[in-house]
Simulated assay, not measured.
Amino acid sequence: MPVTPPLKPPVPQISVLSLSVPVAMGYVPLGMVFGFLFVQAGAPWWLAVFASVLVFAGAAQFMMVPMLAAGLPWASLALATLVVNLRHVFYGLSLLDKLPAKRWARWYLVFALTDETYSVLTTLPPGTSTRQMVTVALLNQGWWVLGTLLGAVIGAQAQISLVGLDFALAALFAVLAVEQWRSADSAAPLWVAVLSYALAWALLPQQALLTAIGLSVLAGLFWRTSAARELRP
């Protein structure tokens, strides 16, 4: 009798726009701040947009503004950008199994892997198509480029203050943390992060963030080792 091949699991239907809208709430105002500051530092508006298209590095782009204004060499700028974005190496390693096999899509997702895009991609269900993953990354970069364009045009035409929009980044990370919590099987990682930062703030307030990251990594390693021991026969 002929053997019936196993049915493939249905591809999940995902509204990529709904996934990207929370990112837009942070990227558009923050991109505006970057574009505004970049132009106020004396650069042409189109160069700000060019940087957001080809660099797309978030915090590193903000770091770029005073360094360019001070006339520092490009080598110093490149080294500083490498140090700031070094965490993305670990992001990429944890996503190797999820990244698509198509080379062009894989390379673009590696390039566009910001903190927020990483957070969204890690919540996607198994079987998500390459088109959906790339569309999420493209939309997220598009919001940043749009914000940069708006801020650069405003900065070139008027002298106004954008004070207060920097809170958009904190609000964005709060939304992404809630989404990660809702999609996770356990709330333990969130509580580990909160308790690590509380302990770090009490012990080393000047280096609280770095200390909290180290404590969280140690907790993750201990958790994985304990889980592996429990699974052994």
Rank of each mutant, 00 (worst) to 15 (best):
R103M: 12
A105D: 06
P125Y: 06
Y108Q: 10
T117K: 07
Q141L: 08
L124D: 03
V145F: 04
V145A: 09
K102T: 11
L121E: 04
L124E: 00
T114I: 11
P100T: 04
T130D: 07
L86G: 09
V134A: 10
L99H: 04
L146V: 14
T122L: 00
F90E: 04
G92F: 04
A105S: 13
L95E: 01
L138T: 13
W107N: 14
A112I: 13
L139K: 03
V145R: 03
G92C: 01
L113G: 10
L124C: 09
L86W: 03
G142F: 02
T117R: 05
Y118F: 15
G92E: 00
T148M: 06
L82P: 06
L96P: 04
V89K: 02
Q141E: 11
W144G: 12
T135R: 09
G147T: 10
V134W: 04
K98H: 05
N85P: 01
L93T: 11
P125H: 09
M133H: 09
F111N: 13
V83Y: 04
A112M: 13
S94Q: 11
T114Y: 06
A137S: 15
R106Y: 09
W107A: 14
P125T: 12
L113M: 15
S119K: 00
L82G: 13
A137C: 11
T117W: 03
T114Q: 09
A105I: 05
L124R: 03
D115S: 09
F111D: 12
G127D: 06
Y91G: 01
T130A: 09
R131C: 07
Y91K: 02
L124G: 03
K98M: 08
L82Q: 08
L121D: 03
P100R: 05
A137F: 09
T128S: 15
Y91C: 02
T122G: 00
T135M: 15
L146E: 10
D97G: 14
V120I: 14
H88L: 10
Y91S: 02
F90S: 07
L109H: 02
F90W: 09
N140V: 10
G142M: 03
L138S: 12
T123H: 04
L99Q: 02
M133T: 10
G127A: 12
R87Y: 00
P100W: 03
T122N: 00
A112K: 11
V89P: 02
N140L: 09
P126V: 05
S94P: 02
F90L: 11
N140I: 10
Y118K: 02
V83D: 05
T123N: 01
L146Y: 06
V84S: 03
R103T: 15
V120Y: 07
W143A: 13
V84M: 04
S129M: 07
